[in-house]
């Protein structure tokens, strides 16, 4: 009886949820493979799949730009770098290095305890366990359409502002895409398009300074990595002299 009621209340499968579970199983499953396998190259491959699935999760949360960035920089750049390192050091002796059983037990104990705490925390707040975004957006759209219909019945003409609002609600209800790549670009040069600048709270909302710091940081890293990679040749030259 209760199952019937539930089916009547929510008759359709939520495909967003299904896609979330499929992607999350990929991400978590390959993360387990990363942790359990001893072969360093298989570990790197499992990391690729796990990271790519995570980028799928970012897409599902509406963060398109960050998801593509994750694919491009993380999966396409950082992990290629990692695999490069793996292949440079991939001698037979180092490809599979077994972990001691005591290490495993200790690691799993600490990890299990941490995970149980984090999981409890994640499901602690009831409002976070489900989302009413779609229902709210649908309801808002339906209410607005009813309002427009009522206005129409009263003989009022629908204005352009009302049409724009209708369009916004349609987009929010249909795919809810937060189209944020332009706003992210603006925020990185210090302009926040999503938050109106209030007079009592001047500045500090943009990300120009962190952006500059990160770019200098990357430059320093570039120079440093090149220096570290060259250091050996210097020491050998010194030794031979």
């Amino acid at each position: 009886m209760s199952e019937l009621l539930l089916a009547a209340a929510q008759p359709t499968i939520n495909w967003h949820t299904v896609m979330f579970y499929v992607t999350a199983i990929f991400a978590c499953g390959f993360a387990v493979v990363v942790t359990t396998t001893n072969n360093i190259v298989r570990m790197a491959f499992a990391l690729i799949v796990s990271l790519a699935a995570t980028s799928g999760l970012l897409f599902l949360a509406g963060a398109y730009f960050v998801g593509a960035m994750q694919l491009m920089i993380y999966v396409g750049g950082t992990v290629v770098l990692l695999i490069f390192g793996v292949m440079l050091t991939a001698q037979k002796a180092f490809i599979t290095m077994r972990t001691r059983a005591s290490d495993w037990i200790l690691g799993l104990l600490v990890g299990g305890a941490l995970f149980s705490i984090l999981l409890q925390l994640a499901f602690l707040i009831p409002q976070w366990q489900s989302s009413d975004y779609q229902a709210a957006a649908d309801a808002e759209l339906a209410a607005y359409v009813e309002k427009l219909k009522a206005d129409k019945a009263d003989g009022k003409v629908i204005t352009q502002e009302q049409r724009d609002e209708l369009e916004r609600l349609e987009i929010a209800a249909d795919d809810g895409m937060p189209q944020r790549s332009g706003e992210i670009g603006l925020a990185l040069v210090g302009v926040r398009a999503d938050k109106a600048q209030r007079p009592d709270e001047p500045g500090l909302a943009g990300y120009l300074l962190p952006f500059e710091i990160v770019s200098i940081h990357l430059l320093v890293v570039l120079v440093g990595a090149a220096y570290l990679a060259r250091a050996r040749r210097h020491s050998h030259a010194g030794a031979s002299q």
Partner: peptide, 26 residues
Amino acid sequence: PLNIGLFFVIAILGLEVFGVILAGYS
């Protein structure tokens, strides 16, 4: 239809190298 279509295509194009790397190593 993606609002970041070009970025997505370039990102995916970069992933093709993994097939080559895996083939080479394995």
